[in-house]
Amino acid sequence: MNKEIIHTNKAPEAVGPYSQAVACSANKLVFLSGQIGLDPNTGKLIEGDFELQVRQSFNNMQAVIEASNATLANVVKMNLFLTDLTKFDVVNKIMSEIFPKPFPSRSTVGVLNLPKSAEFEVEAILAL
Rank of each mutant, 00 (worst) to 15 (best):
residue 72 L to C: 08
residue 29 L to Q: 14
residue 46 I to W: 01
residue 79 N to I: 11
residue 61 M to T: 03
residue 118 A to P: 05
residue 63 A to Y: 09
residue 32 L to H: 01
residue 88 F to H: 03
residue 10 K to I: 11
residue 98 I to V: 10
residue 123 E to Q: 05
residue 76 V to G: 01
residue 5 I to H: 05
residue 54 V to R: 00
residue 12 P to K: 12
residue 26 A to R: 01
residue 2 N to E: 09
residue 81 F to R: 02
residue 7 H to T: 11
residue 109 V to Q: 07
residue 34 G to N: 14
residue 117 S to D: 14
residue 91 V to P: 00
residue 27 N to S: 15
residue 21 A to F: 05
residue 65 I to F: 02
residue 27 N to A: 12
residue 18 Y to V: 01
residue 108 T to Y: 03
residue 5 I to P: 01
residue 26 A to T: 04
residue 6 I to P: 04
residue 3 K to R: 14
residue 62 Q to N: 10
residue 29 L to R: 14
residue 125 I to F: 10
residue 93 K to T: 11
residue 17 P to G: 05
residue 49 D to T: 11
residue 39 D to Y: 11
residue 29 L to F: 15
residue 37 G to W: 00
residue 103 F to T: 01
residue 116 K to F: 09
residue 2 N to S: 14
residue 25 S to G: 15
residue 64 V to Y: 11
residue 15 V to M: 12
residue 121 E to V: 12
residue 35 Q to L: 09
residue 105 S to V: 04
residue 95 M to Q: 01
residue 125 I to T: 10
residue 100 P to L: 06
residue 102 P to D: 05
residue 102 P to K: 03
residue 97 E to R: 02
residue 83 T to I: 15
residue 37 G to T: 02
residue 55 R to E: 14
residue 95 M to I: 04
residue 49 D to Y: 07
residue 87 K to L: 12
residue 37 G to V: 00
residue 123 E to I: 02
residue 60 N to K: 09
residue 5 I to G: 04
residue 110 G to E: 08
residue 114 L to T: 05
residue 78 M to P: 00
residue 49 D to Q: 10
residue 123 E to T: 03
residue 8 T to C: 07
residue 36 I to K: 01
residue 71 T to R: 09
residue 82 L to K: 02
residue 17 P to T: 04
residue 53 Q to R: 12
residue 119 E to S: 07
residue 104 P to R: 00
residue 25 S to V: 14
residue 113 N to Y: 12
residue 21 A to V: 06
residue 111 V to Q: 05
residue 8 T to A: 10
residue 79 N to F: 08
residue 124 A to F: 07
residue 80 L to N: 01
residue 30 V to A: 08
residue 105 S to A: 14
residue 20 Q to K: 08
residue 92 N to Q: 06
residue 117 S to W: 10
residue 37 G to S: 04
residue 31 F to P: 06
residue 57 S to F: 03
residue 80 L to T: 02
residue 95 M to S: 02
residue 116 K to Y: 11
residue 3 K to T: 05
residue 12 P to C: 10
residue 96 S to D: 07
residue 28 K to H: 14
residue 51 E to T: 10
residue 21 A to P: 02
residue 54 V to I: 13
residue 118 A to Q: 04
residue 20 Q to R: 08
residue 105 S to M: 07
residue 29 L to S: 13
residue 15 V to I: 15
residue 44 K to P: 04
residue 44 K to I: 12
residue 67 A to L: 15
residue 116 K to D: 09
residue 121 E to G: 06
residue 107 S to H: 13
residue 89 D to I: 06
residue 32 L to Q: 01
residue 62 Q to L: 06
residue 124 A to C: 14
residue 112 L to S: 11
residue 95 M to F: 03
residue 123 E to V: 02
residue 39 D to S: 12
residue 22 V to G: 00
residue 58 F to P: 00
residue 98 I to E: 01
residue 74 N to T: 07
residue 62 Q to H: 09
residue 31 F to Y: 14
residue 78 M to L: 08
residue 40 P to E: 07
residue 33 S to W: 07
residue 109 V to H: 08
